[in-house]
Each structure stands twice: as structure tokens, then as C-alpha cells.
């Protein structure tokens, strides 16, 4: 291990975002279904949200001065990593309850892990986040765990 991860950096594990509450609308479901090339009528009509509708629902809406020059919103959940080139990552999504127009959903993200591995062309930093999406009864609707790699 080359020891890229300082104690200070590792102490950010467990950091949690402010909960964000958003309204699901038929119009947004329809837009998402069309944009993704969905072919199922119930989604194109917006009767129920397709899988991954939480992606547009909770994509960060930030003011332009908070976008980096490449047009990306800075993720305030993350510390500044000593490696900055983002590589492919993976994710796992659990769909617990269906999502309908009119639902209010609240998402909270947690930084759950940071670790280092030696890759074939140098050190890699991995970090993991966990997003819990609940309804107004505080029941779990969707859970999404992501792993991202920096090189």
C-alpha cells in the first residue's frame, strides 16, 4: 500500500448528506420513459415510474457557479481525493416499493467506505456510497449502493 489515504480522509467515512425530498410527477415519468426508449405503455403514460426513475429525480440540481468547467456538479458528500480521474464504477439497486405520480420521496446518501487497491498501472482509490430513498411513512422504497474508482 502506498498509503494514499490519510486519517483525515478516512474520517469522512460515515458522512451523510442532507435528506432531499422530491415530488414524483406524471410529466417527469413520461419524459424519462421517452428519453430512455422505454416501450412499456404504463411508463410512457406515466402511470407508474420505471426502474431507475430515481436517477433523474435525485440528480443534483445546483446553480451554475457550482458546476466545474466540465459541467459536473461537485459532489459535496465526497472528500478531496489524492487521485482525481474517475473510472467506471458499479452499482446495485434494490426496488422495494413501486413509485407513483404524486409520491413524495426523500433520499439520503451516506459515504460508507473508502479504500485503496493496487491496480496494474498504479494505485486506485475506491469509495462506496449508499442512498436510501423512503416515502413519507419513512418506509424504504429504493436503496442504491454505488462503488466508484479513482485513478
Amino acid at each position: 500500500m502506498s498509503g494514499l489515504l490519510s486519517e483525515e480522509l478516512l474520517s469522512t467515512i460515515g458522512r451523510r448528506s442532507e435528506p432531499r425530498r422530491e415530488l414524483v410527477t406524471r410529466r417527469d415519468i413520461r419524459k424519462y420513459a421517452i428519453a430512455t426508449g422505454n416501450r412499456q405503455r404504463k411508463y410512457l403514460d406515466g402511470d407508474v415510474a420505471p426502474p431507475m426513475f430515481h436517477v433523474p429525480l435525485f440528480w443534483d440540481v445546483v446553480e451554475m457557479d457550482r458546476l466545474s468547467p466540465d459541467g459536473v456538479a461537485i459532489d459535496t458528500l465526497l472528500p478531496k481525493f489524492p487521485l482525481e480521474k474517475a473510472m467506471a464504477g458499479g452499482l446495485k439497486i434494490d426496488y422495494v416499493k413501486p413509485v407513483y405520480p404524486g409520491d413524495w420521496l426523500t433520499a439520503t446518501r451516506t459515504l460508507t467506505d473508502i479504500y485503496e487497491k493496487q491496480g496494474s498501472s498504479g494505485p486506485l482509490i475506491f469509495y462506496e456510497t449508499d442512498m436510501h430513498i423512503v416515502d413519507d411513512d419513512n418506509e424504504l422504497v429504493i436503496r442504491e449502493r454505488t462503488t466508484r474508482i479513482m485513478r
Binding site: 420505471p50 426502474p51 431507475m52 467506471a88 464504477g89 458499479g90 452499482l91 426496488y95
Partner: peptide, 26 residues
């Protein structure tokens, strides 16, 4: 990633429900 979800859902039709999916962009 969404197309992977659609692949499963179109195959399922109304005969089942997608519970979870994991994928990576390689």
C-alpha cells in the same frame, strides 16, 4: 444501465417484478 433494467422488465412483462439489479459500466 437503464437498458439493462428494460431488458429484464420486457422479458418479465406482467408476469413478475424486478427486485434488484447490479451492473457496472466497463
Amino acid at each position: 444501465g437503464d437498458w439493462l433494467n428494460q431488458c429484464v422488465e420486457e422479458w418479465l412483462g406482467e408476469d413478475g417484478r424486478l427486485q434488484s439489479i447490479e451492473y457496472s459500466n466497463r
